[in-house]
Amino acid sequence: MIITLTMNPSVDYLYKLEKLSPGNLNRVTLISKMVGGKGINAARVSAILGTNTIAMGIIGGNNGDFIEKEIASDKFIPRFTKVDKETRNCYVILDKDNQKTEINEYGFPIENQTLNCIRKDVLSLISAENVSIISFNGSLPTNCPLDFYSNLISDIRKIDANIKILLDTSGKALKRCLDSKTLPDIIKPNETEIADLLDIPTTTNCQILRKEIKNNITLSKIPIIFVSLGSEGSLVKFNNIFYKVSFKKIDAINTQGSGDSTVGGILSAIDRNKNEKEIIKYGSAAGTANAMNIKTGFLNMDDFDTAYKNLTITKIGD
């Protein structure tokens, strides 16, 4: 069983235009209005891959009603906490070259009693179900303590130290967790986020990243680091071994949600007790397959199978 927790879901709007012109009138075509939120996308993908998954989070208002309606056809089990405030909107603008511009609302403030409710629900599920892995996904809501994730990791480890914990967030929330004594088992930064953590210029050079990660006291302690490098593939640290993942060029339709889909693939593989190379393949193939679909956080199994077969994994080192 997998659990994903999305503390700050959204309703996502995807627009397409020829070229974004800041400061001028831009006429766009609405391609789709979708359920957003990293953990929801990851849960959808892991469920498509055939893994029992529970998606948790906080939703409210008309957007919350929209999310409930839209996920009714998804294969994961929804366990959302409802509040009386409006779930945020997020906007993605794609030009003809698939250059992406994002406009994201912060989301509403969360009351302490709601945070306590989420915490109790997670720990209750951990105690009641045979959970192999849980992921914490995305940004924290306005006014949520930055140590919310690290405290929850500590609480989970007290109940069952064997449950794997994946943290897919960024910025201050990620740094606060990595500065704590309760590190996650897996993180999934992109090239910008890993550069921020390492305090180096952004790069897709795997040898540079490998050296910097090995020499970083905190990151070297995290068992699995899955660094998404966009069209350059990815770099994966699996314990003390590093791998470069490459794939054949694809005609990407929508890369939004590919990182979340990668998480979904990783979750599914770990729940199935796959070995390290299979975990890498599941994550990479899921992320690639998502980019071949207009829907965010979604994949077709034929695309997944094709991407899986076309992956190349190369061990890199000294």
Rank of each mutant, 00 (worst) to 15 (best):
D305V: 06
N216Y: 00
A269T: 10
K315Q: 15
T312Q: 13
Y282E: 04
K277M: 04
K158L: 13
L229Y: 05
R79Y: 07
I159H: 00
N216H: 15
I250C: 06
I187D: 03
L146S: 11
V11Q: 07
P9T: 08
K211T: 06
C90D: 03
E70A: 15
K69S: 11
S124F: 13
S21L: 14
I40D: 02
K237C: 02
G60S: 05
Y106G: 04
N190T: 11
S231E: 15
S180K: 09
I126W: 02
K172D: 11
L115A: 04
S154H: 12
I313W: 03
G61N: 10
T288D: 04
S284I: 09
K16M: 08
I156H: 09
S150Q: 12
E276K: 13
G138Y: 02
R176F: 03
N275C: 08
T203E: 00
E276H: 12
G230D: 08
T182M: 11
D168F: 00
T51H: 00
T296Q: 04
N162T: 01
D155E: 08
E18N: 15
S46E: 07
I67A: 07
N190V: 01
I2F: 11
G138D: 02
I126V: 15
I294N: 12
K309F: 06
L209G: 01
L267F: 06
